[in-house]
């Protein structure tokens, strides 16, 4: 595309990524969560792909790294749930909630302003799923674009 479109895409890319990470990180106190935030971040990848051509994008978005990222998200999701078995409780038991450790503050009943340091392992789960959806949707967009024939051929 033209130089103006590329400049605007470059300017918007960090803003979209930061907004998506905000949605992922605040998934347990505001509307949103891992899937929605991951989809927002993948939109940034789609924007970059639209602004540049497929050949120019090869150096910026690596398919190998995105696949590693997606697998790491799923492994982290299952791993956080598996730690509960190691602690002597059941699978998917929320061992961090109300414990006073990381993300371990308890909240009073009723409407409150919201505290980031709450929720047990829910923020960790949100981060894991966000990483996975980010990598997965970006890979799908990249591969669907690679099926298009080159211009002029």
């Amino acid at each position: 595309m033209s130089k103006i479109v590329r400049f605007c895409a470059d300017m918007l890319y960090p803003a979209i990524v930061i907004f998506g990470l905000y949605v992922i990180m605040h998934g347990h106190i505001t509307p949103g969560g891992g899937f929605q935030g991951g989809a927002v971040v993948a939109t940034a990848a789609a924007l970059i792909i639209v602004a540049y051509s497929y050949e120019e994008i090869q150096g910026m978005l690596s398919k190998f790294l995105l696949q590693i990222q997606e697998s790491a998200g799923l492994v982290m999701f299952a791993g956080v749930a598996l730690i509960a078995i190691g602690l002597g409780t059941t699978f998917f038991y929320n061992y961090l909630a109300n414990s006073g450790l990381l993300f371990g503050m308890s909240v009073p009943f009723g409407p409150n302003p919201g505290e980031l340091n709450t929720g047990g392992f829910l923020p960790l789960m949100n981060i894991a799923v966000g990483i996975e959806v980010w990598g997965g949707l970006a890979i799908v967009i990249l591969y669907l674009l690679s099926g298009i024939p080159k211009e002029g051929t």
Binding site: I29, T30, P31, G33, F35, G110, P111, P113, G114
Partner: peptide, 22 residues
């Protein structure tokens, strides 16, 4: 919506269908 952050009332929609819809 079933979110307690600055909730104006406690009459909330059912959360389980929303989770399944996600």
């Amino acid at each position: 919506a079933p979110i307690y952050t600055y909730a104006p009332s406690l009459n909330m929609a059912l959360p389980t269908p929303q989770a399944l819809c996600l």
